[in-house]
Design a protein around this nucleic acid. Structure first.
Lengths: 192, 192
DNA sequence: TGTTAAGAACAGACCGGTTGGTATAGTGGA
DNA sequence: TCCACTATACCAACCGGTCTGTTCTTAACA
């Protein structure tokens, strides 16, 4: 693997674990076993440029992953369950949740750097777009699909936060159980 | 207001906006217009002790606030809507979302400091407990109430994250519209 | 094929500034 | 007088970033 990809790969994980300010350049170059000169050769504009590169990399990784899962299952509900299962497995194996989240970067940098904020927004949008199309295919109306996709994104993101604080996977499991309530195509109206 | 409370009050907001590592002690003492000696008199163990004090303060503030809202509305659904409305108003007025969130601290510190992680976990638990009791009063079974309370917490937390990245309040509005799907006491079974 | 030039890739010393934290002196009210 | 409280000066460690210099790769040319 070339140096630049190596840097992005390792820095991504570090940023996800400790946040932007939580990781120093020294830590990154040590983990990569490279020199500072090398890092600044590949990322002349320094740390923030590296972060954005990491977010773009993450975007592709996550998007591909989700598309893959969503192609393997017929309904959004099944696909979502599979996706969450994968997150949980990862969490229980690795100990940390570095799956589809980058919340630390969002809340840290959203108010400070517009480029970073936009990179994060793009990632969330693409995730929601995947959900949206599947939901439309499930028979949801465009409006319903759109708001449901947002709800799925938010609840999973929030669920990951809860898992991190509790150091256990249960919150995501619960969410996976509750999500069908909003994912199932209604066959009967319940009220009104 | 005494110095200690002043420090906690201001530091809390700064931590929420910029995260733990994102705020320096210098910034805090300048915002409080106090000296470093004063800060270390009240928090001899330094920054992390201050953070935990902030989280505890936040816990009380948020809990009281939510309890208050939940007492004013008959059902969880109405109370939740009111709560989200308040969040959105705050967001649109202040420009930042410093309401019921501290996600930056969670994802930053969860893997680094157990005391901080536990303080965050406690806060989430208390929020869920409030929701839980209201849901039971609404007629939910204990199990359903428990998982629904978690879902509400997660989706609101995730919704705030989405609002921050997009710099607009729409995600929380959508969530407020979707939440009834899991909050309404079912009058008819929809499938099975 | 051997020589050389160019530039990409890398190394590491170094910079000013800031960090969290400490030590000590001073202040004002009981 | 006492002591909770505050102010000031200071520290080593670290931060992101810049610098100069070296090595490696590649391509052009005779």
């Amino acid at each position: 693997m070339d140096t630049k990809s190596l840097i992005i790969d390792i820095a991504t994980k570090l940023f996800q674990q400790k946040g932007y300010k939580g990781v120093g350049l020294t830590e990154i170059i040590k983990a990569c076993d490279i020199s500072k000169g090398s890092l600044y050769h590949h990322f002349p504009n320094g740390k923030e440029e590296l972060l954005i590169a990491c977010l773009q990399y993450l975007n592709e990784e996550i998007t591909n992953d989700i598309v893959d899962i969503f192609n393997r299952y017929p309904t959004t509900q099944e696909a979502t369950n599979a996706m969450i299962s994968k997150l949980i497995d990862n969490f229980e194996m690795e100990g940390t949740l570095i799956g589809y989240t980058f919340s630390s970067m969002v809340s840290e940098m959203a108010s400070l750097s517009d480029p970073v904020r936009n990179a994060c927004a793009k990632l969330y949008t693409e995730m929601q777009t995947i959900y949206y199309h599947k939901l439309v295919a499930d028979g949801f109306s465009n409006d319903e699909a759109s708001s449901t996709a947002l709800m799925v994104t938010a609840s999973i993101e929030g669920g990951m936060l809860l898992c991190l604080t509790q150091k256990r996977a249960e919150p995501l499991q619960v969410i996976s159980q509750v999500l069908p309530k909003i994912l199932e195509t209604r066959r009967f109206k319940t009220s009104e």
